[in-house]
Design a protein around this nucleic acid. Structure first.
Length: 476
RNA sequence: GGUCUCAUCGUCUAACGGUUAGGACACCAGGUUUUCAUCCUGGCAAUCGGAGUUCGAUUCUCCGUGAGAUCACCA
């Protein structure tokens, strides 16, 4: 059996957004599953769109998700270099082969002249094909003109896509496209085919936007006499609101933005994979090992899927809850509120333990926990708007708080003993839990919602809890 | 417009041609001595339309319709 070799070949034109990261995920899963090789290749033949630092961003995003490559950019390999701008000699070699065979020729026209052809075709209501205007006697290519493929016999191509099934397109889809630009650099159309062949790529997996160009690639493979790898197209991820392909213009977030928000890489991987793929069972949560084990191209969905952030958040929440406290804590370094900087680790862990089950993403840690680390500002509307507390007179509230204070004063402040004291107060004051517990909660946290009361007080400690209750009874 | 592709709850999806069309997210209601969350229970909700093949069609075929992609010296 031949080794499976897949690749991700991004262009360094900006950040990687969540709409196109699957073009890395799926080929990586396949390579991992088959003990094959996953290659990272940088496609930087468009100088105009090159963005400084974009490559680092790509590397960082892949690294965060744990999509590691064992050949290619930075790690090297037998088929390098893995940056297209460093491979121009190779492309020129292949271009010369085509010229010798009479299958490539210099384009003598300026882009303005080509534009005239295009307009003429439009006026005649015919689709524009460059090959209809092919020059009879093209000049010798000197490298300053674009080099075009000569499609010798336009025909219908039929091919097998593991995701989409049998695909075909007629000769109208074929044209004399540009192989080498007048700047001497190859086009994507040319370079990626040469590279995939030289690098021994067996499965080309990419977004659906390439599907219309595949007949062109097929004609080039034929001209180059190269074996055609498996060509698979992945359906688009659509914008959450619209029905368009998710792109940066529709506000597609970068992978690193989700990283910063505190989405777990496990959740992101799980979510991305389960958009457009499932194993046929009712399983929703997959570990990365399970994904590697179970993934298959023929179970990839054929239609586009909308990016549903709520579902991502749900999935992230379940992943957060599945982590051990220590593991979760190790990931929260940059997410605790500023006021927690001076707090000790044991305390921070205890706080984290209280909110673990309600955390949907790490960046919401401050709003959930700040009152554990700093004195909260009193917000009396929490009492006046509370459907239980607003029924009581201020004096009654004060009396209650004083009762709580003195009762808790005799308590050793484990969660159990705090609960026991509060329960006893329910008896002695004759108040309903809805009143008493809400009051204590507000007085100690001044937050619209907070974790389990007894546990919160236990973590807060006797001194702080009593001081806050005391202070609250003065403010009222 | 040409070419190509797709089509099941609001969303993500399952269903050898035979199921009361299943699950999950979201939403709604109830329960877990207070809030938010978790957890549990229940509820709402779908096969784009029309022909054909078949005893039987979400599934196969055709025609519509809708949606998307692509038609660059971008990838």
């Amino acid at each position: 059996m031949t080794e499976i070799r897949t690749r991700f070949a991004p262009s360094p034109t900006g950040y990687i957004h969540v709409g196109n990261i699957r073009a890395a995920l799926f080929p990586w899963l396949l390579a991992k599953q088959k003990n094959g090789t996953f290659i990272l290749r940088i496609e930087d033949t468009d100088q105009a769109r090159f963005v400084e630092g974009a490559t680092d961003l790509i590397v960082e995003s892949l690294g965060w998700l744990g999509i590691e490559w064992n050949e290619g950019y930075l790690v090297g390999g037998e088929h390098g270099p893995y940056i297209q701008s460093e491979r121009t000699e190779t492309y020129l070699l292949w271009a010369q082969k085509l010229i010798k065979k009479g299958l490539a020729y210099a384009d003598p026209y300026t882009s303005a002249e080509v534009e005239v052809f295009r307009d003429a075709a439009k006026k005649a209501k015919k689709p524009f094909l460059y090959r209809d205007n092919r020059p009879a006697n093209p000049p010798v290519w000197d490298g300053t003109q674009p080099l075009r493929l000569k499609v010798a016999n336009p025909k219908r191509f039929t091919w097998q896509d593991p995701v989409m099934g049998e695909l075909s397109a007629g000769p109208e889809a074929l044209d004399d496209f540009i192989l080498v630009k007048s700047d001497g650099l190859p086009t994507y159309n040319f370079a990626h085919i040469v590279d995939d062949a030289e690098m021994g790529v067996t499965h080309v997996i990419r977004g659906l936007e390439y599907i219309s160009s595949i007949p062109k690639y097929l004609s080039l493979y034929e001209a180059l006499e190269l074996e055609v790898p498996v060509l698979a197209c992945l359906p688009h991820i659509m914008a959450p609101d619209g029905k368009k392909k998710l792109g940066k213009r529709d506000g597609a977030k970068s992978v690193s933005e989700y990283h910063e928000q505190g989405i777990l890489p496990e959740a992101m991987l799980n979510f991305l994979a389960s958009m457009g793929w499932n194993d046929g069972t009712e399983q929703e949560i997959f570990t990365r090992e399970e994904l590697i084990e179970k993934f298959s191209l023929d179970r990839v969905q054929r239609s586009g899927a909308r990016f549903d952030e709520q579902r991502l958040l749900w999935m992230n929440g379940t992943w957060i809850r599945s982590l051990s406290l220590d593991d979760l804590f190790s990931r929260c370094n940059n997410y605790f509120p500023k006021s927690a900087d001076s707090a000790d680790e044991t305390y921070k862990k205890a706080v984290l333990g209280l909110v673990q089950e309600r955390l949907k993403f790490l960046a919401e840690l401050p709003e959930l926990t700040s009152f554990f680390f700093e004195e909260p500002d009193a917000n009396l509307s929490l009492i006046t708007d509370n459907k239980q507390l607003k029924k009581l007179e201020t004096s009654e509230l004060k009396t209650l708080l004083q009762a709580v204070h003195s009762s808790l004063n005799d308590c050793d402040f484990t969660a159990e003993s705090v609960q026991a004291s509060l329960n006893a107060l329910l008896e002695s004051t004759g108040q309903k839990p809805g009143v008493l517990f809400s009051l204590v909660r507000v007085a100690t946290t001044w937050a619209p919602f907070s974790p389990n009361l007894a546990e919160s007080l236990a973590v807060l400690g006797k001194e702080t809890s009593l001081a806050r209750i005391e202070k609250a009874s003065q403010i009222l």
